[in-house]
Nucleic acid binder design. Structure first.
Length: 570
RNA sequence: CGGGAUGUAGCGCAGAUGGUAGCGCGCUUGGUUUGGGACCAAGAUGCCGCAGGUUCGACUCCUGUCAUCCCGACCA
């Protein structure tokens, strides 16, 4: 391809709207442009990389025995209505009506549609197991799209769905996908970590996420360097500290005592009032779960993990109760809530049960109790891990210190079980002609996000450093002076030879100064650069890899050989 | 959905106490240049986000609205 004819609108300056490096570089290198918030167009260069990522995914899916098909993005409401997700998705689904007034949406994910299809076509156990996938646009009207293509409203997802006879076979299908995902992200040269994850609205019995380590990641990962335990913070299991360890005799059982604490409401105010650590308090938070209220009791320095709480309560809407509700339920102003004598369920974090003689609100404005003890002084409805893990907590497997880092979720795999197949009556006939619901798995990879994650992990101050496997072009040939016939002829010769050798190559035949060409080449991130300059008359050119600063002076034949061999390193 | 900010040329930005719009880059033309975003000269490019209002007069003041970005909440 000739740079003079290519549509590559590079930008010298960083657009103000782009905050993170992958977004900035995708715009600056002319890979894509924004059309609306969270909606992007891919330009020729961006599309080439996009397709390469797609192709890697496709090859590994095919190797794993999955079959590709393509569903519509426009979907009728019925399938989602029978699974209940027409409501669950709420505002996040793009909805519209056809001219006849029938409800449609743009598919946010396709469990129902695949299930529906398999239900109609597959009757016998003989057809199972079966894994189907597609690479297709998904639509989610995100509340807050951000970071360019990292969280967009339209994005391309590879979604695969496995159908099996039973859980044991699902485990096999799931493992195949797991292995395929590892190969995919390895081929993309990503540094990733696989973590236990919450299944969220997807439902099902278990899931894992493929996380690319990055400070700009939206997910927090808790992991243990000793034993390899890794989980999304939403999911990470928390062990209870045996006791707060702050005071000498903190474990002594003392008599409960009411203390006047006028206007002392927040944990900070309480720590200074009592002159003690936030670890010596139990805070009681009132939550509204759908239409019911619950009290949650955790240690003063901890945060409630609303995902865990939501899962335990199996509710859809979950929020902190309004001040008025808190007052009605506890009989005191906000700031004095305690676990005593409540008419609602009291969910207590295990850590609180381990603590002795703690401080808690008295459910009476202006008062707290001290020397409170779980069970002795208040009734516990259930003991449940409902807090967030933090750095330094004990690993639930080996007990060593947990580390917490951020990650970008590029892939997510689920064991769905029979949630959708039962809802939609997707059954097969076994050897005895008995109808049995199929056991399902679902597996997603965000193509756009994977592409952004690759840039996020492969760049320097000059631009993108594409791994060979996903580079839009593998080699750029730069003639320094295009009106120098010797240089130009040699550059054209090398360009032609590389094309003949099957290398994806661009020749920068633009009438630009060399500096401009070098800057653009670095910005776009061609893995191999061949500069044809002063020594062209001797048949010598300069060979350079984007990844380092080393320059090699090679003759024509050596150059072709080196470039071809580099291009094969995918 | 709560909080904050910003909308002026393709991009980055400046425009006071109100008087009808500018800079840098890019773009076009000519010339000089040519190994890391050249220089000189001459140009072209604007619904000043949109709609009201105040005013003789609004990019500027007021109201509303839309859009975009950030933080949080939420998230498949």
């Amino acid at each position: 391809m000739r740079a003079s004819k290519m549509f590559i609108p590079t930008l010298r300056e960083t657009p103000a709207e782009a905050e993170i490096v992958s977004h900035q570089l995708m715009l600056r290198a002319g890979l894509m442009r924004k059309l609306a918030s969270g909606i992007y167009s891919f330009l020729p260069l961006g599309l080439r990389t996009f397709k390469k990522v797609e192709q890697i995914v496709r090859e590994e899916m095919d190797k794993a025995g999955a079959q590709e098909l393509l569903m519509s993005a426009v979907l009728p409401a019925e399938a989602y209505q029978s699974s209940g997700r027409w409501e669950v998705f709420g505002q996040e689904m793009f909805r519209f009506k056809d001219r006849g007034g029938r409800d449609f949406c743009l598919g946010p994910t396709h469990e129902e549609i695949f299930t529906e299809t398999v239900k109609r076509e597959i009757r016998s156990y003989r057809a199972l197991p079966m894994t189907l996938y597609q690479i297709q646009s998904k639509y989610r009207d995100e509340r807050r799209p951000r970071f360019g293509v990292m969280r967009s409203r339209e994005f391309v997802m590879k979604d695969a769905y496995s159908f099996d006879r039973d859980e044991a076979n699902l485990d096999i299908s799931y493992q195949k996908m797991y292995d395929a995902y590892c190969k995919i992200f390895d081929r993309c040269k990503l540094d990733y970590i696989i973590v236990d994850a919450d299944t969220g609205a997807m439902g099902g019995s278990g899931s894992q996420e493929f996380m690319v380590k990055s400070d700009i990641g939206e997910a927090e990962i808790a992991y243990c360097v000793s034993c390899g335990y890794a989980a999304n913070v939403e999911k990470a299991v928390c062990l209870a500290d045996k006791c707060c360890g702050v005071k000498e005799n903190c474990c002594a059982l003392e008599n409960i005592e009411k203390v006047a604490t006028p206007d002392v409401k927040t944990i900070e105010e309480l720590t200074s009032f009592f002159n003690c650590s936030s670890k010596e308090f139990a805070k009681t938070l009132i939550y509204k779960a759908d239409d019911k209220f619950v009290a949650v009791v955790i240690r003063g320095d901890r945060d409630v993990n609303e995902t865990k709480l939501r899962n335990y309560l199996s509710c859809i809407e979950l929020s902190m109760a309004e001040a008025a509700d808190v007052a009605r339920i506890t009989g005191a102003e906000v700031g004095f809530a305690g676990p005593f004598g409540l008419k609602i369920n009291v969910i207590v974090d295990p850590e609180v049960c381990e603590m002795k003689s703690i401080i808690a609100g008295a459910n009476e404005t202006g008062f707290h109790y001290k020397n409170v003890n779980c069970e002795r002084d208040f009734k516990v409805s259930v003991i449940k891990d409902i807090r967030n893990i933090v750095e330094g907590d004990k690993c639930p497997i080996c007990g060593r210190a947990i580390k917490v880092e951020r990650g970008i979720e590029v892939g997510h795999i689920f064991k769905l079980g029979t949630k959708y197949t039962q809802a939609l009556n997707c059954v097969y006939l076994d050897e005895e002609s008995k109808e049995i619901p199929m056991v399902m798995g679902s597996y997603g990879i965000g193509i756009n996000r994977t592409m952004a994650a690759i840039i996020e992990q492969n760049n320097d101050e000059n631009g993108i450093i594409w791994p060979m496997a996903v580079a839009p072009y593998q080699v750029i040939v730069i003639p320094v002076k295009i009106d120098d016939e010797i240089q130009m002829n040699l550059a054209e010769k090398i360009y032609g030879d590389l094309q003949d050798a099957g290398v994806e190559v661009v020749i920068d035949d633009r009438d630009e100064r060399p500096g401009v060409k070098f800057k653009d080449a670095d910005l776009i991130g061609f893995p191999v650069r061949i500069t044809v300059g002063k020594r062209a008359s001797e048949g010598i050119v300069e060979f350079k890899l984007r990844i380092n600063k080393d320059l090699e002076e090679l003759n024509e034949a050596e150059t072709i050989k080196r470039a071809v061999s580099e291009a094969k390193k995918v």
